[in-house]
Every structure is written in C-alpha cells, then in structure tokens.
Simulated assay, not measured.
Amino acid sequence: MTSHPLPSVAVLGLGSMGQALAGAFLGAGHPTTIWNRSDGKGDGLVARGAVRAATPGQAVRAAEVVVVCVVDYDAARAVLDRAADDLPGRLLVNLTSDTPERAREAAAWAEALGVDYLDGAVMVPVPMIGTPEALIFHSGTRSAYEAYEPTLKALGGQTAYVGEDHGLAAVHDLSVLDFFWTAMHGLVHGFALAASEGVPAAAAAPYMKTLAALLTSVVDGTAAEVDSGKYPGDLDNLTVEAANVRHIVRAAEHRGLDAAALRGVLTAAGRSIDLGHGADTWSSIVEGIRNPA
C-alpha cells in the first residue's frame, strides 16, 4: 500500500451520506470512483468528475482507499464480499454505524483477508461533510490511519483517531450521541413544559442557551470526577439536586407530560444515594448508572 498527495478513493454506497463523502473527496482533488447497488444515484458526482463503477470489485480495483457507507454492517459485508479478492493492498474504511462488537467482527474479517481496516463513525449531518467543523472518529490500524490522514481529513477538519481497538470509534460514537440525544430530549421536554403554561418555546430559548453554556463549562470537571471516582460535594450534592429533579417530574406529570426520562434520572440518583453518595456532587449519579440492579 502506497501513499501520495492525492490517493485515489472509492466510495461504496451512495445514500445521502455516501454522496456527501464522495463529493468531499472530489472537492479535495482525489480521483474518486463510486458504486451503488441500485441505479439512479451519483449523476451529479459523475458530472463533477467521479467515475461510476459497474461492480464493487471494479470500484475497489481503481482505488487505494475504499470507503463503505451503507445502511448497516450486514449490508456492508454483502457489498464487501463481492470485492473481497480485490481488497488486499488497500485501506478499507467502514463508515457504517453500528456497535463496537460489530466493528471488531468486521476487523477480524478484514484481518483474515490481509486488509488494513479502519472503523469509523460520522458525527455530523450530511451538509457538514467536508467542512472544518465536521467530526469523524476513526479507530484501527494506526499506521494506515497515519498514512492516509490527509485523505481522511478531506471529509472533516475534526477527524480524530481514537485508538488501535477497532471498536473505539463506535464507543465514542455511542457515548457522544448518548449525551447529545439525552440533551435534545431535555431541550424539547423543557419547551413542552413551558408551552403547557402558555410560554412559547421561542420565549424560553434564550434561557436554554444560557444553561447550555453552563453545561459546556462543567464537562471537563465532570469527566475528571467520573474517571477518578471522587465526587467532592462542597458546591452541590446529589440529594439536593435530585429533589430539584423531583419537582420537575411532579410539575410535568401534573400537566400530562411524559416524564419517563426524568423518572429514570431519579431512579439512578436514588441508587447512588443508597450507595452513600447523597452528600457527593451530581457526578456521583454515575454510580447509580453503573449499578442498575
């Protein structure tokens, strides 16, 4: 496997994300070959200079770096099986989201073929692909990542290598999205609570932004406490904060809103308090999360 300033790339799968990935490679000047299972996709990419392959094998043979982005790992494997004989000597990058376990299974399959393999996770929506702000995780063969890092960064300026364990990109993907979707639920739930008393979401939005900034400010400190297992309760404590959550649950249910997620927060807090963390900081709720029984 060789590296030069503009390696050739193949993109297998032309859903909206696959087309964005191919477009970013083209925009960065990489010779790009595309393939899709069904016809009718990629005409715009061809007009920009991409080459359409008739088969996955044909696409793979034209490239140094092969990127697959399809609906799931079963679909990815079905595509790659058709090109298995052509993959050795190339870098295979799987940007199909799934679990860490599936990523490691895919890595074992690639290793058996003698193929350098990176598993990845795209953390931004389609319009952000190729921008300096786009975050994409990669994990797997370090030497392969380093050899083609400039190529992979064509997809996003925040592209990050997170380790040799092929499952780590998926771990980062799931943990970051866990935070994101829980926060998004809280945002919408808060708007719904305000609206139940006639307060428009737009009126509450500026104050949501203020609290979002506060949330950002505590990320590093919370990470340090979770990693160390030390939760100094000198500024707040779990018992008091759980009482605040209980008030929100009561108000939400009184207004006919679904408060199941917040009740889950209370359950985890209660476990942590039972474990002796009532006087510790809010971060100690992690103990209740880690001990669900």
Rank of each mutant, 00 (worst) to 15 (best):
A195D: 10
A170R: 01
K153M: 12
R102H: 14
D74Y: 11
T182E: 00
L95A: 00
E164D: 15
A279M: 12
A78K: 13
A205C: 01
V71M: 06
A147W: 05
K153R: 15
P150C: 01
C69N: 13
V51I: 15
F137P: 02
P150Y: 04
A76L: 00
A160L: 15
A213L: 10
A204H: 01
L174C: 12
A195E: 11
P88H: 10
L14H: 00
A107G: 04
P100Q: 05
T159D: 06
M128H: 04
V60P: 05
W181H: 11
K41H: 13
A47H: 08
A154F: 07
L238E: 02
L91Y: 07
A121N: 09
R61S: 13
N94F: 03
T281F: 07
S143Q: 03
A223T: 07
D227Y: 06
A20W: 02
A59E: 04
A260R: 15
H138C: 13
G190D: 04
Y231G: 03
A134S: 03
L215T: 11
P127T: 09
L266I: 10
S196F: 06
Y145C: 02
D274L: 02
A106R: 03
V70I: 05
P150I: 02
T216K: 07
V245C: 12
H254D: 15
I248W: 12
V245K: 05
Q19F: 01
G156L: 04
G264S: 11
P150W: 01
D98A: 02
A84W: 05
P56M: 07
H30V: 02
S175H: 11
D258R: 12
V71R: 15
Y207N: 04
Y117E: 00
G186E: 01
R263I: 04
I136C: 02
T222H: 01
V218D: 10
S283G: 15
A223E: 09
A84L: 10
I248G: 05
S8G: 14
H172G: 12
L21P: 03
D258N: 15
